[in-house]
Amino acid sequence: MRPALALLLRDIKLAWREGGAIGTTLGFYLVVVAITPLGLGPDLNLLSRIAAGVLWVALLLASLLSADRIFHNDYEDGTLDMLAMGPLPLPLVAALKSLAHWITTGVPLALLAPILGLLLNLPINAVPWLVLAMLAGTPSVSFVAAIGASLTLGLRRSGVLLALLVLPLYVPVLIFGVATVSAATTGPASPWPPFLMLCALSLASLVLAPIAAAAALRTAMR
């Protein structure tokens, strides 16, 4: 328990301290969402219709910005060797580092989304569902990103390759995330089924992604 907690807290602390991690992600999210209406013109009905989709796509892109940090720094400075020799199995190490990424990326992005929704004329009654759907879906985003991060360890320009590998895997999260919000705003279907699918996706990646990431880490350390 204590090693797990130590690793989680250290990763969260480092994300704050190493600067850029959280700030860049939130800043990128803000900018992408802010320039979208400039490109589309001031049609409030149109913006309100596409708000959920834009917020979700921008969230996926923003969270990928910091995804390569999940393992890269530890790999580069040799800490990964120590983590691999510790009392925790490697999949658990990968899971904890993904969890730290979710806490420092997914949660702040999900909480920023309703404010950015104002820029896109997001209907106010959709806000609770938007935040809920993002909090439920972003764990999957972080855990799947960890697979990409571990596969691209040690490569130069790994960020681009990581995005290519991981973005297609985000399609289900995107579909059910947007479906939850649009069901809540326009009806007539209930937002619960797509929301529960999002939860299921997150739970599945919580279990499966760390195993894949750990296997890729083992290969990267050779």
């Binding site: 328990m1 204590r2 090693p3 907690l5 130590a6 690793l7 250290r10 602390k13 480092l14 301290r17 190493e18 720094n73 580069e76 400075d77 040799g78 800490t79 060797d81 120590m82 983590l83 020799m85 510790g86 009392p87």
Partner: peptide, 29 residues
């Protein structure tokens, strides 16, 4: 315990924090 070519040190943490993490992580509770 392995000490290799790479030192495995976090630049953003103080010397004491680096060691405290090792103690907590490898100390096994």
């Amino acid at each position: 315990a392995y000490v290799g070519h790479l030192n495995g040190i976090k630049a953003a943490q103080s010397v004491r924090e680096n060691l405290a993490f090792t103690a907590d992580f490898l100390g096994g509770g």
